[in-house]
Design a protein around this nucleic acid. Structure first.
Lengths: 186, 186
DNA sequence: GTCTATAATTCGATAGAC
DNA sequence: GTCTATCGAATTATAGAC
């Protein structure tokens, strides 16, 4: 009995929640709509997850799994990072949920900060780069800005760009944020 | 009688609306809170602007006033654009309102698209650059990503960065998006 | 012009039958 | 475990007195 019915119900709720939160944002995504998508009763959502806030926390919970990339030569680290984020954005709803909801939900903001300050910065530190926090922040501006324009604003030229084109354009930018000498100032 | 009392009331409502929409987003910003900020009755907000949706449209209405920059040499156009956007983000609430609300409000998305597709792209076209729409989109990813990280997510290293540092880091990126040869493909 | 009172919805969450 | 019924709170928007 490895697969209980309650487990499938839980998973169905979570999948519907990810879709709704990602499509509508935290405020407009209603328990009722999520329940309808999961084909169950709205009361069940509360029973399984306690509250809307906790359901969101569960939907936004995921393993960022950002490798440390210590074996990647510094010269190609920028391109590697762009490819990695492209794969993650495309394959998983969770990052889009975070991006969509980070505007009004403090939990999402904290989690987004954790990805770049808590995961990417240490990776850069492992490569012995100076000012890893600043460089991680700059990478965040470019990668999150790309995600914003592609998945939320849906700017036509960004939406239609092929992945290898994206790498060609953004790779050198990220690389420069990693390795370019920092401007003067302590 | 150039200054009626009703005009001041209208202006007070609009100013409070910009502040609330920018701070809380469209859904969480309530008519009641806006009215309280403006020190008037909530019913007056509806009387003056008809509905919350129309009030938002008015709050997000503004002249982007993006100069064509035809007199700026191409070599320094990137840096000029970064400085221009920095000035606009800092001095006016409206861009932050758009950014905060673009996640859940279609009006804000359209207006944001218009800035880059309808204003920046023609500027690039005036400089005889190839693929102006793609280049304008790329500039959007970097500038909007910076604004997102600084004003919404408030990533510490981005928040604390001085304006001239921002120009030093982002200027070359924007410049490369304007003038770097496009990757292969039609 | 301004404000009180309230209508009409909608939402999150709960209680309890089955 | 599941669903019906509903509560209580919050919202936008309106009607009408002053």
């Amino acid at each position: 009995m490895a697969e209980k019915k309650s487990d499938r119900t839980r998973a169905a709720i979570l999948a519907a929640a990810r879709e709704r939160f990602g499509a509508d944002g935290y405020e407009r995504a209603t328990i009722r709509a999520i329940a309808a998508d999961a084909a169950i009763d709205p009361a069940m959502v509360i029973r399984y997850y306690g509250s809307k806030e906790k359901l969101f926390a569960a939907a936004a919970e995921f393993d960022i799994r950002l490798p440390v990339f210590t074996d990647v030569p510094l010269a190609s680290l920028g391109e590697t990072l762009v490819r990695h984020f492209l794969g993650r954005w495309g394959g998983d709803d969770t990052l889009r949920v975070l991006l969509r909801t980070a505007v009004t939900n403090e939990v999402a903001v904290d989690r987004m900060r954790g990805i770049f300050a808590g995961q990417l910065a240490p990776t850069l530190r492992a490569h012995a780069l100076d000012r890893p926090d600043v460089r991680a922040g700059l990478v965040a501006t470019q990668m999150l800005g790309f995600a914003l324009c592609r998945y939320i604003l849906e700017l036509p030229p960004i939406v239609h760009m092929r992945d290898d084109e994206v790498v060609s354009w953004l790779g050198p930018t990220v690389a420069s944020y990693l390795t370019a000498p920092a401007p003067s100032q302590a």
